[in-house]
């Protein structure tokens, strides 16, 4: 606290803004009214993307209907990686600026991100069997995503492993930051090494190698998955803040009663 007051003038506008926003109470006030809207849009957009992909998008010339697995596999993979990037960002803020909100976010991102990674692995496996002829191979892409899953699991366990939550947050933040090195490895694994996994179809700089009527449902499903992730994490963070407040009130009452 003392440190914050001392540094308020020196850390500059960014630091000051972050510290104002880092207040869990303010987060709760800002985000709670948005939660129903976030939930409605998540369901609508994800639903649209998945129904379009499952029932209406054209089948691939080569893979046939099996290419429909793309509309769940690819968004799950993107969200799994974006979620880990968010986790690493929170850990960075947690270590440098000691944000209470960053620790809170890191704690709630972990299980959601692990879930999306799991979905990515399972759907990928179900896609691999009919197309490649194998549920699993140890190529660089599959292995690095499996490592991502274990990083999530390690983070979930580590952040809850200490009696003093601050120690757990510190240790887990270091794990998350070290593990972030895996993200570029996942992205570039298909370019750096020979893999059985296909190369990147979607390109943000050039032309995507996918026909437009297959691209639209993919993008809509991806926006939906991102929204689901944001909604789930925000709802969990709000719940965690309220749980903490309840605990605080009960403890204070117990102290007075004793």
């Amino acid at each position: 606290m003392n440190e914050n007051v001392l540094n308020a003038g020196r850390t500059g506008a960014a630091g000051a803004w972050l510290h104002r926003f880092a207040n869990p109470g303010r987060f709760l006030r800002l985000v709670r009214p948005a939660l129903p809207w976030l939930a409605v849009f998540s369901i609508l957009i994800t639903g649209t993307g998945l129904v379009w992909g499952y029932g209406f998008a054209p089948a691939d010339w080569q893979q046939g209907d099996a290419s429909r697995i793309m509309y769940v596999h690819v968004p799950a993979a993107w969200v799994a990686m974006a979620g880990y990037a968010a986790l690493a960002g929170c850990s960075f803020f947690s270590i440098v600026w000691r944000h209470p909100l960053a620790d809170l976010a890191a704690e709630e991102i972990g299980p959601v991100g692990a879930g999306f990674t799991f979905v990515c692995l399972v759907t990928g496996s179900l896609w691999g069997k009919p197309m490649w002829g194998a549920y699993w191979v140890w190529d660089a892409r599959l292995t690095s995503v499996l490592v991502l899953f274990f990083l999530y699991l390690g983070h979930i366990a580590l952040i809850r492993a200490f009696d003093n939550p601050a120690h757990g947050h510190r240790a887990a933040a270091i794990l998350a930051l070290v593990g972030a090195i895996n993200l570029p490895i996942i992205v570039y694994s298909v370019q750096w090494w020979n893999t059985l996994h296909q190369g990147n179809t979607i390109s943000f700089t050039g032309n995507s190698k996918i026909y437009i009527t297959m691209l639209y449902p993919l993008l809509i499903a991806s926006v939906g998955f991102y929204l689901c992730f944001v909604t789930l994490v925000c709802a969990r963070m709000c719940a965690a803040i309220m749980e903490r407040r309840t605990r605080g009130l009960l403890l204070a009452a117990a102290d007075r009663g004793a």
């Binding site: 998945l50 697995i69 769940v72 799950a76 759907t123 969990r236 719940a239």
Partner: peptide
Amino acid sequence: PFINGSYGVTLVFLLGLGGLTFARY
């Protein structure tokens, strides 16, 4: 079975986690 399995797993995950989160909230 592979397509239905993939969509099934995804829906069970999204609805399951959504439901758990809603209940916790």
